[in-house]
């Protein structure tokens, strides 16, 4: 049965408390290092901060999930094992993992702690998901954002674990865990260093006419006119000129956010166990607004009422939103 748990982001202790107070069923977070996919400057938790966060969350009935969802470079697993040891000692409720070696270490060392399979593992088929369940005891899979609701419903029948889907936030349809675009330009790896478009390589340049260029490692990713909304400076959201489109176009993906608020009832009916809100890099204001909105919507649906979701367009990338592949495979 779907419990429709709300899984909410926290990039700082204050954001975690905000998420808990706003009605999160669980909060996911990471350490200040390469063990998680939001290894951004000034973000994330020290072990002491995580200890306090776990205490705060548990006292209010909220779970804490620790993201260890990057891939250790070959032979350099100590950082990930140490992070798992610390998380276990501090009493986290689950680890979110992508790498099989990390999953294997946790499954053997801490068999009593739940393993969730990160979207970074890109497991979208019954065969892939069952492999992780059977070999590492994975209890939940976070699905890549490429499946329709009928496909999710079918998948649910064929796998022995819970399903978690994204419902709001950054919408990148690159194959998670295998995207090397940032690495290509900056030398840093999204998948192993936890940085997509590292801030140290990002520059915004304001032109005299009021337009703005976003650059990554010296390459222009996009140029926004005076009245255009902006997006993240990621290569997959860049606008490029090509021989067949000399005016420039979004070759991979456009600045836009996922918002599945209208599809919540169908997703619950399809057997989705948990809903993930993206955005550990976002502010407390974002966390408060989005978590409150989805808390109210989920509670309404559970109570048999029609959900009246808040308008979250102001918080979306480029101030645009989509239901992506969840609605139709025709998306992009």
């Amino acid at each position: 049965m779907s419990l429709a748990e709300l899984i909410c982001p926290a990039g700082t202790p204050a954001a975690l408390r905000t998420a808990v107070d706003a009605g999160a069923d669980a909060v996911y977070c990471g350490f200040q290092d390469a063990t998680n996919a939001r290894n951004f400057p000034g973000l994330n938790f020290t072990p002491d901060e995580l200890a306090e966060a776990v205490t705060y969350a548990h006292a209010r009935g909220t779970k804490v999930l620790l993201a260890l969802n990057t891939y250790p470079p070959a032979g350099k697993v100590d950082l990930w094992r140490h992070a798992a040891d610390t998380g276990a000692r501090l009493g986290v409720d689950a680890f979110i993992v992508a790498d099989m070696g990390v999953a294997d270490y946790i499954a053997r060392t801490y068999p009593g702690i739940r393993l969730h399979l990160s979207v970074q593992a890109a497991a979208s088929s019954p065969e892939a998901t069952r492999y992780y369940c059977e070999n590492f005891g994975v209890k939940r899979v976070v699905l890549p954002r490429i499946l329709t609701i009928p496909e999710i419903r079918q998948l649910r029948r064929e796998i022995p674990c819970e399903i978690e889907t994204f419902i709001f936030g950054n919408h990148g349809l690159m194959v998670e865990g295998r995207c090397s675009l940032t690495n290509y330009l900056t030398g840093q790896s999204t998948n192993m260093d936890g940085v997509c478009s590292p801030a140290s390589d990002v520059e915004y340049v304001r032109d005299a006419d009021g337009s703005m260029s976003s650059q990554l490692a010296g390459f222009t990713i996009d140029r926004f006119g005076v009245d255009e909304k902006a997006g993240y400076p990621t290569i997959c959201k860049g606008r490029y000129a090509a021989p067949h489109r000399p005016e420039g176009y979004y070759a991979f993906e456009e600045p836009i956010s996922l918002n599945l608020s209208r599809l919540l009832p169908e997703l619950i009916e399809a057997g989705v166990h948990a809903f993930k809100i993206e955005g550990r890099q976002r502010s407390k204001s974002y966390v408060r607004g989005v978590v409150r909105a989805f808390r109210a919507a989920v509670d309404d649906i559970k109570a048999g009422r029609e959900a009246n979701i808040a308008d979250l367009i102001a918080l979306t990338e480029g101030q645009k939103q989509t239901q992506g592949a969840f609605e139709t495979k025709k998306w992009r």
């Binding site: 915004y204 703005m212 976002r282």
Partner: peptide, 20 residues
Amino acid sequence: AEQDGDAAFFSRDLEVSGDT
């Protein structure tokens, strides 16, 4: 934290330059 910085950036109400 009454406003979200990314949202203000997306809407072009906030500009940053220099060391991101």
